[in-house]
Amino acid sequence: MTRATPLPSPTLRVADIRKRYGALDVLRGVDLSPAAGRVTAVLGPNGAGKTTLLKTILGLVRPDHGEVLIDGAAAGTDASVRHAIGYMPQLPRFPGNLTPRELTSMLDDLRAFRGVPDEELVEAFGLAPEYDKPIRALSGGTRQKVNAALAFRYRAPILVLDEPTASLDPVAARVLKEKVRRERAEGRMVLLTSHDLGQVQALADDIVLLLDGRVAFRGSLTGLLTTTGQADLEGAIATLMQHDAPLPFDREEVA
């Protein structure tokens, strides 16, 4: 697909983020700078801090230390940086009394959006007939489709997707994966989490592995497979988790 205006290449820099909830050290100094035009998957066991990391990037979680810079502006203090982000939360609970159409028009107003929205997913998911029903009458899967459609709607240069395919049926999940690939081809930066390693292997260019709130690995998928000598991502992650110390490589070194 071609677009009339070229996409400005987004930059995102996560610098030494630390976050503690009570006695729980969720993030213990995380650095990250995902590349535009690539899909970066953040992996890690439950409680590794994946969602907290994504929420810090969105300014939803206030870190105790460190900062997130989006196109050079601090995400924590400058709300306008979120014009650059399309976010798909893990389990959204939309207000049940509103219809998807009302919700969408409210978010349009909120973003003061004047451009042509991306409604590819609304079409591909066949959502149009559901758009005038109250959200409470929609199934969980349909809500998740609305959630996905909203994340892509504003053609934001950075896409943050938290478990995007978790409650989608296989057909819808496939539609979404194709969409992510097209967005990548247009130069967008995609940051996602997923528990489905097969899916990550099919979609991701770069891998960030979080263990105990630290980056245990950061680099390209192919580099990861080569270094660990494994045929698939599952084997590679298992190998990495057996190491106590982070492996001595980074995207720059393996790219």
Partner: peptide
Amino acid sequence: DGREFTELLLSHPVSR
């Protein structure tokens, strides 16, 4: 009840 929705709104360019 509205916490998740608040979260959704805050993921857009809205000041707190």
